[in-house]
Design a binder for these strands. Structure first.
Length: 420
DNA sequence: TCTCCGATTAGAC
DNA sequence: CTAACGGTCTAATCGGAGA
């Protein structure tokens, strides 16, 4: 029996989240910007139609935006994460075998579901009715083909938001694949599609039919898997339990350039607090910490300095205060006067479960003060992030990101609940 | 020549 | 008024160092 694997993908997700609480924006061209109000990361259909490009720096779109009355919003991740959880909860009910693939996508294995068509439409209907978020459903025998089917469902209004690749005849499949540029295939990005074009591979069909050994030799194992997936041989399994992070990064571009060391240290203490909270949330500790600084790479008129320094820790830790001291030390060592710093961050790596650690033959065992961190996490969970701070954490405002048009946290802050 | 490891590349979203 | 270009994560591959 062929597998009926559905990929459910939310339409213009961030914009859709904003519109749930702003029905007046339903027909308005809207975009959502990345952190620091930098680039366009989500567009309504109206904004797409006006030619606003995904990933474009917002200042480059401003003229067009003013001309057409396009509304730009800062991103509100608390809202998007909460709305995502609601949608995922609904989808999970349709199959015990599902994978939350990203904030707005979920694979749902519907193999063996009677009346697949009706169920798919019902799933769509329920998502939009219960959360206000419209979704599309693509079904195929492999993840790659389910993705492709979803692309078709989104693009062709006739599909009514559901498209099943498995229901096609061989001829129809060939026709369909031949009309899809190879760039649209999951796993084929800008660079690969350019190189593939040199070999005459332009469409999904070309990739499916390409000579496998040559493909493997020239482009590697990743694309061979993609080819086999297009040939309906599953190579990418459903990953139902999400595994622990192997690396945790927290970094930000600053709202304006920073020149003073104490301001950098303040930013880094904030990043450490976030990264370590994440680390503890997954029950891990890290044995390596790295700090990096960046001047503004787009300002070629300014002196550039991009230092980065890492230390292996004597023993793994998830203690914010301990990590903070290391971050401070590394930053202080790298800091040089006279540069305009635009970004900084920390990387925690060599991550392992807290239950598992290598003792030191020559040092006595040390028990870290985990009760303090447990208390800190509980207080921040209950009373909000940053209730208990690490070091100066956020005392300086110079570095904090621009967020000129952020919507309220409608679903995650009592004070932000709209009064009707 | 083989193995290991850090750095780089490419991709997703 | 002006300047303004995101953040996290993974897997594969490359290339140098050392055994």
């Amino acid at each position: 029996m062929t597998r009926q694997l559905a990929l459910v993908d939310c339409n213009n997700f961030y914009v859709s989240c904003e519109r749930v609480f702003r029905p007046d924006l339903a027909q308005v061209p809207v975009v959502v910007l990345s952190n620091n109000d930098g680039c366009v990361v989500s567009r309504s259909n109206e904004a797409k139609a006006l030619g606003i490009q995904m990933g474009r720096p917002w200042f480059e779109c401003k003229a067009l935006a003013e001309q057409h009355g396009i509304l730009a919003l800062s991103s509100n991740y608390a809202l998007y994460a909460d709305m995502s959880n609601r949608v995922m909860g609904i989808l999970a009910a349709y199959s015990p075998n599902h994978e939350v693939y990203s904030i707005d996508e979920c694979f749902v294995d519907l193999t063996g579901t009677p009346q697949l068509r009706e169920v798919s439409y019902a799933m769509r209907q329920r998502a939009v009715q219960w959360t206000g978020i419209p979704v599309c459903v693509g079904i195929g025998p492999t993840k790659t083909l389910a993705k492709l089917a979803n692309h078709v469902a989104k693009k062709h209004p006739r599909s009514q938001g559901v498209f099943n690749y498995n229901a096609l005849t061989l001829d129809q499949k060939a026709q369909l694949l031949a009309h899809i540029p190879v760039q649209e295939v999951w796993g084929v990005g800008r660079k690969l599609s350019k190189r593939l074009a040199c070999y005459g591979v332009h469409t999904a069909w070309d990739l499916r039919q390409a000579h496998t050994a040559t493909l493997r030799a020239q482009f590697g194992v990743v694309i061979e898997k993609t080819q086999r997936e297009l040939q309906e041989l599953a190579c990418i399994e459903l990953q139902e339990v999400s595994s622990d992070r192997q690396q945790i990064i927290c970094s930000r571009s600053f709202g304006s350039a920073v020149t003073q060391l104490p301001v950098l240290l303040d930013a880094l203490s904030t990043f450490v607090a976030n990264a370590c909270a994440k680390l503890r949330a997954q029950g891990s500790h890290a044995a390596m910490i790295q700090v990096f600084l960046h001047t503004n790479r787009f300002r070629q008129d300014q002196a550039q300095y991009t230092p980065s320094l890492a230390v292996p820790l004597p023993r793994p830790t998830c203690d914010s205060l301990e990590v903070s001291r290391w971050a401070e030390y590394l930053c202080t060592r790298m800091f040089k006067d006279g540069y305009q710093y635009k970004k900084a961050g920390i990387v925690l790596s060599e991550i392992s479960p807290q239950t598992h650690w290598q003792g030191d033959l020559l040092e006595p065992a040390v028990t870290s003060n985990s009760r303090l961190m447990v208390a800190l996490d509980q207080l921040n969970l209950r009373y909000g992030r940053g209730t208990v701070k690490v070091s100066t954490q956020g005392a300086y405002t110079d570095w904090q990101m621009r967020q000129e048009r952020k919507s309220p946290d409608y679903t995650t802050r009592w004070a932000d609940i709209p009064v009707v």
